[in-house]
Deep mutational scan, measured.
Amino acid sequence: MDVFMKGLSKAKEGVVAAAEKTKQGVAEAAGKTKEGVLYVGSKTKEGVVHGVATVAEKTKEQVTNVGGAVVTGVTAVAQKTVEGAGSIAAATGFVKKDQLGKNEEGAPQEGILEDMPVDPDNEAYEMPSEEGYQDYEPEA
């Protein structure tokens, strides 16, 4: 019985440690998101679009440190934060509304985080759909 109880105690310690790591990862992701939003706020009209992409990228980098179902929630929060940063930029006159959601080359930025393969159960990952990809044929 002692062996059984000791095993359960060790398992509990492992769960607590994993929860603490997840909590730490979420806190880091939130900190990076805040950094990115402050970065966007300090940019001029020309830099705002690039700044919004930076927020998304920093958040995406930190999301990889967070495991399990938390990833889905962090990704949703990050996307809403990026959308909010863009709205703030438009409201303050840093950028025109028609410039939001495009990178410096004018290509749409939507789907940055949505296409990231995420499995809350950590069982399997699927690649994003290939609808947006084109076949590449090298020139002879």
Rank of each mutant, 00 (worst) to 15 (best):
T33S: 14
A17S: 13
E46N: 12
D115I: 08
M5E: 01
A124P: 03
E61F: 05
E110C: 06
E139S: 12
K23Q: 09
A11M: 14
S87F: 14
S9V: 12
P108V: 05
E114Y: 12
S129R: 04
A29V: 07
G47C: 07
D135G: 04
A27C: 13
M1T: 00
A78Q: 05
T22A: 07
F4V: 01
F4T: 00
N103E: 06
L8C: 01
G106V: 05
D98H: 02
Y136R: 14
G101K: 15
V48G: 01
K23E: 00
T75L: 11
Y125G: 15
K23W: 09
G51D: 01
A91Y: 13
N122V: 08
S42G: 07
T92M: 03
K102C: 05
K96T: 14
V77T: 06
M127P: 04
P108I: 14
L38A: 03
G14Q: 14
G73H: 06
G51V: 07
N103F: 05
D2R: 02
A89K: 03
N103M: 10
A85D: 02
A85R: 05
K96N: 09
K6T: 04
S87T: 14
A90T: 12
F94H: 09
G73V: 14
D121S: 14
G31M: 14
T59H: 02
Q79R: 10
G132S: 06
V55Y: 14
G86C: 11
S9E: 13
G73A: 13
V48F: 11
D115W: 03
V40F: 14
A17Y: 14
V52H: 01
G47S: 07
A85S: 05
K32H: 15
V3M: 07
K80W: 13
G36Q: 06
L8T: 00
E13P: 01
K23D: 00
A76R: 14
V70N: 01
E20Y: 10
A69P: 03
T59N: 01
E123W: 10
E137G: 04
V55I: 15
V37L: 08
V40M: 07
Q134E: 10
G41M: 12
D115L: 07
K102A: 04
K23S: 04
K21Q: 07
A78S: 03
T64H: 11
S129F: 04
E110N: 15
S42W: 09
V71F: 06
G106D: 03
M5A: 03
T54M: 11
E20D: 07
S9A: 05
G84Q: 14
L38F: 10
K102P: 08
T72Y: 05
A30G: 02
N122P: 04
Y133I: 02
E57L: 09
L113C: 02
N65E: 07
F4P: 00
V77S: 01
A17C: 10
Q99Y: 10
A18N: 00
A85I: 15
A78H: 11
N65Y: 09
E83M: 12
G47L: 14
E83L: 04
V49P: 03
E20A: 03
P128N: 09
E130S: 03
S87A: 13
V77A: 09
H50M: 13
E139D: 08
V82Q: 05
K60W: 06
K96Q: 07
K34Y: 10
E114A: 02
G73C: 11
G93F: 12
V66K: 02
K43E: 00
N122D: 12
E105K: 01
G73P: 02
E61P: 04
G31W: 04
E126H: 08
V71T: 06
F4I: 11
G132H: 10
Q62W: 06
I112N: 08
G86A: 08
A124I: 02
K10R: 11
E126I: 11
N103W: 08
A11I: 15
S87I: 14
K34P: 00
T33N: 00
E13N: 11
E114V: 13
A56C: 15
H50E: 04
A56G: 03
L100W: 01
V15F: 14
V77W: 14
G132T: 14
E61V: 05
V15A: 02
V63A: 07
A90W: 12
A19L: 15
P128E: 08
G41S: 14
T81L: 10
V48I: 08
I88S: 02
G14W: 04
K12D: 00
H50L: 15
D119A: 04
K58R: 12
V118Y: 08
T59V: 13
T59M: 02
E20C: 10
G47I: 08
A91D: 04
K80L: 11
T75I: 12
Y39I: 06
K96M: 12
P128V: 03
P120L: 07
G31D: 04
T81K: 02
D121Y: 08
E123M: 15
I112D: 03
A78N: 01
G67Y: 12
A85F: 06
A107L: 08
V55E: 00
G14L: 06
A11G: 04
G73L: 11
G25A: 15
Y125R: 13
V26H: 00
Y125N: 12
G41R: 05
S42K: 15
E126N: 14
A91C: 09
V63H: 01
M1G: 00
N65H: 05
K58Q: 04
K32N: 03
T59P: 00
K32G: 01
E126D: 09
D115C: 06
S42L: 09
A90C: 15
P117D: 08
G106S: 10
Y39K: 12
A17T: 09
A17K: 15
G67L: 15
A85V: 10
A91I: 09
T64G: 04
K43M: 14
P138N: 04
G93S: 09
E13T: 05
A53D: 12
T72L: 11
M127W: 09
T81W: 08
E126P: 11
A17R: 12
G93W: 10
A78R: 06
V40K: 01
N122T: 05
G68R: 06
D121H: 07
Y136N: 05
N65G: 08
T33F: 01
K34L: 04
E104A: 15
V70S: 02
G47Q: 10
V40C: 05
Q24E: 05
A85M: 09
A19Q: 02
G106Y: 06
V55P: 01
G25D: 05
G31E: 12
E46M: 09
V74R: 01
V55K: 01
G67W: 15
I112S: 15
P108C: 10
V40E: 00
E139P: 09
E61G: 10
V16M: 15
G101A: 02
K96A: 12
V82N: 03
A76N: 11
V3D: 02
T59C: 12
K10E: 02
V77N: 01
E137H: 06
T75E: 02
V74N: 01
V66L: 10
T72I: 06
V49N: 02
A89W: 13
Y136W: 06
Y136D: 01
G31V: 03
Q109H: 09
Q99L: 15
V74I: 03
A89N: 02
Q134N: 15
A29S: 06
K21H: 11
K45M: 10
K6L: 04
Q134H: 02
K96W: 13
V37Y: 04
E105C: 03
L113I: 15
K60F: 06
V118T: 06
A56R: 15
E130I: 06
